[in-house]
Lab assay of single mutants.
Amino acid sequence: LSQDQINEYKECFSLYDKQQRGKIKATDLMVAMRCLGASPTPGEVQRHLQTHGIDGNGELDFSTFLTIMHMQIKQE
C-alpha cells in the first residue's frame, strides 16, 4: 500500500470512528470498505471479522482495518 492509499483509508476510517477512539464498529466495516471502492459481500465481511476474532458487535482498530482492506482488494 502506498502512503496515499493509507492516508485515504485513514480519512475514511475516521468518518466512522465517531468517538475518535481509534476504533470503528464491526457493523460499519462494510460501509467503510465501500467508501474506499471495495465491494465486499456480507459473507466476505463476516469472514474478515472471524479471521481477526471480532464478533458482529465488536470493534476494530485501524491496523486491522488496513489488513482487511488489503486482503479484500487482493481478492477482488
Rank of each mutant, 00 (worst) to 15 (best):
F65Y: 05
R34V: 09
F13E: 00
M69Q: 05
S14N: 05
A26C: 14
D28N: 08
K25H: 14
I6S: 08
R21M: 08
R21C: 07
L49K: 04
Q46H: 08
K25W: 09
E44C: 15
D28V: 06
S63W: 13
I6A: 04
G56D: 13
G53C: 02
R34C: 14
L1H: 02
A32C: 14
R34L: 10
D17T: 03
D28G: 02
G22S: 05
P42G: 15
A32W: 01
G58K: 12
S14Q: 10
G37M: 04
R34Y: 04
Q5E: 02
A38Y: 14
F65L: 04
K25S: 12
C12P: 01
G37C: 05
E11A: 10
K10S: 08
K18R: 08
Q19D: 04
S39L: 05
S63P: 15
F62S: 04
D61L: 05
T27H: 07
S2C: 07
C35P: 04
D55G: 15
D17P: 00
L29F: 01
S63D: 09
F62E: 07
A26W: 04
Q19H: 15
C35T: 11
I24Y: 00
I24D: 00
E8R: 13
Y9Q: 04
I24C: 03
D4F: 07
M30G: 15
S2A: 13
G56L: 08
S39R: 06
M69I: 13
F13G: 00
H52L: 03
F62T: 03
L1A: 07
V45G: 02
Q3W: 06
E76V: 12
S63H: 04
G37A: 06
L36A: 11
K10V: 08
Y16N: 04
G56T: 04
M69A: 11
L15T: 11
C12V: 12
N57L: 04
M30Y: 13
Y16P: 01
K74V: 02
S2I: 08
Q75H: 03
K23P: 00
T27E: 13
D28L: 04
D28M: 07
E59R: 04
Q46S: 15
K23W: 11
L60S: 01
D4T: 06
K18L: 05
E76G: 14
H70R: 14
S63Y: 02
M69H: 06
C12R: 11
G58E: 11
M33I: 06
E59P: 02
F65I: 02
E8Y: 11
Q19F: 05
T27I: 07
T27Q: 11
M69Y: 06
G43P: 12
G43N: 14
I24M: 14
K18N: 06
R21A: 07
L60F: 07
Q5C: 09
D4C: 03
K23T: 13
G22T: 02
D28P: 00
N7Q: 13
G43K: 13
G56W: 06
M30I: 11
K18A: 06
K25M: 13
F65S: 04
S63V: 14
K25F: 12
E44S: 15
D17N: 02
M33R: 00
G22Y: 02
C35L: 14
R21T: 11
G56C: 09
D28S: 10
E11K: 14
P42Q: 15
A38H: 14
E76L: 09
L15N: 15
N7H: 12
L60V: 12
L66Q: 15
V45F: 04
A32I: 12
T64A: 15
L1G: 10
C12D: 01
C12G: 13
I6K: 10
N57C: 08
G58L: 03
R21D: 10
K23R: 13
R21W: 02
L15G: 09
T27Y: 11
M33V: 02
E76H: 15
C35K: 14
S14L: 09
F13M: 01
M69P: 01
G22I: 00
E8N: 13
F13V: 01
M30L: 11
Y16C: 06
F13A: 00
D4W: 01
Q19V: 05
E8T: 11
I24E: 00
G58T: 12
V45M: 02
R34N: 15
S39Y: 02
C12M: 15
A26V: 10
K74P: 09
N57P: 15
D17Y: 01
S14W: 04
M33P: 01
Q5S: 11
E11V: 08
L60G: 00
Q20W: 03
I6F: 09
M33F: 04
F13C: 01
L1W: 04
L1N: 15
S63R: 05
I24Q: 00
I68A: 06
A26I: 05
K23D: 02
M33S: 03
H52Y: 06
D4I: 10
F65R: 00
L60C: 10
A32G: 03
M30H: 14
I68F: 07
Q3N: 08
L1Q: 04
F62C: 05
A38C: 09
L15Y: 13
T51I: 07
S2V: 06
L66M: 13
C35V: 11
D4R: 03
L29S: 01
Y16G: 02
L60K: 00
F13D: 00
G58S: 10
L60M: 08
K25Y: 13
L15Q: 09
K23H: 10
L60A: 03
Q20E: 10
K25Q: 11
I68G: 00
A38T: 14
G43E: 15
V31H: 11
C35M: 14
Q3F: 11
P42W: 15
D28I: 03
Q3D: 10
L29A: 05
S63G: 10
Q20N: 14
T51S: 02
I6W: 06
H70Y: 07
E59V: 04
L66C: 14
D55Y: 03
K10Q: 12
A32F: 02
D28H: 08
I6P: 05
Q20G: 12
D28C: 09
I24A: 01
K25P: 11
Q20L: 07
G22M: 04
G56A: 14
A32S: 06
A32H: 01
E11R: 14
D17K: 02
C12E: 04
E8M: 07
A32N: 01
D55V: 01
